[in-house]
């Protein structure tokens, strides 16, 4: 059951001129959130911006066993992300959540390959923790424009996550798209028991779903569509999924997703 929390900003760290990680005192949401779930965020009570915006829960903050908040990974592209970038300690951010269908952790645990593009890294911190706790071996394929936009590498390394990096300018890891090393390793992974998880721009998700299918691997992708309410009220965030043998059908990504089986989505 989602709750609405007026969350105080505990910290706001700029990772680059565009990216920031904001820590919010929303323990009720953080404690209930599963990997891949999101919160609907609003800053201020005015009409600009009017609607909330969806953000994946990035990290769950703990002191010992006590959950005391969550973080959001944000890239400055619009009004809300600008406000999140500029927010300072003590500001208040309204958070509604946790919402949506999370990633399913596989059973029995074997290998999990997470594929992140840019700000699509967000759901993978909590997913990596959940998978590592189950003894699953985790790899993160992580792509961005440049090496300066690949974040939290040590964070993942410290948790035992193997990193495979790609940048468009070749400044770190493979030059090009992250799906290239993914495909290369899938080719070499015949017979191994693994699940592919992805989050990032939709063309990347489509490519991941396609290569996963090529090598007969299941994939789970987290989509991001323009969302109005996050609760299934407005029918704006729909995505086409396969229905019956040949048909397709729009479903609301806020409640039927944001995580879908890559094979179920009709990529356009």
């Amino acid at each position: 059951m989602p709750v609405d929390v007026e969350a105080r900003v505990i910290a706001n760290t700029r990772l680059s001129p565009d990216y920031n990680v904001i820590s919010l005192a929303a323990p009720a949401i953080a404690a209930a959130a599963a990997p891949g779930q999101f919160v609907m965020v609003k800053l201020g009570h005015g009409s600009t911006p009017l609607l909330r915006r969806p953000f994946s829960v990035f990290e769950v903050l703990r002191t010992g066993r006590t959950v005391n908040g969550l973080t959001l990974l944000s890239k400055r592209i619009g009004v809300t992300t600008q406000m999140l970038f500029d927010a300072v300690e003590g500001d208040v951010v309204s958070c509604l959540g946790p919402l949506g269908r999370p990633y399913a952790t596989i059973d029995p645990p074997a290998e999990a390959w997470m594929v992140a593009g840019g700000v699509g890294l967000a759901p993978f911190a909590t997913l990596a923790e959940a998978l590592c706790a189950r003894g699953t071996s985790v790899t993160l394929f992580y792509g961005a424009r440049t090496g300066r936009e690949l974040f939290y590498l040590d964070w993942f390394r410290e948790r035992g996550v193997r990193l495979v990096l790609a940048t468009e300018d070749g400044s770190l890891g493979d030059r090009g798209r992250v799906t290239q090393p993914l495909e290369r390793e899938l080719q070499a992974a015949a017979g191994r028991d693994l699940m592919v998880y992805a989050c990032g721009p939709e063309p990347m998700l489509a490519a991941v779903a396609r290569v996963a299918a090529t090598y007969h691997r299941a994939s789970q992708v987290s989509v991001e569509r323009v969302m109005g309410c996050g609760l299934g009220g407005c029918y704006s965030c729909v995505i086409p999924v396969r229905q019956d043998p040949t048909g397709r059908h729009y479903v609301r990504s806020c409640i039927a997703g944001p995580v879908f089986a890559g094979a179920d989505v009709v990529w356009e």
Partner: peptide, 14 residues
């Protein structure tokens, strides 16, 4: 219904 994009925010509205 229509293909996405189905909503867009505008000043004090959508």
């Amino acid at each position: 219904g229509h293909p996405p994009q189905r909503i867009v925010e505008t000043p004090a509205g959508m």
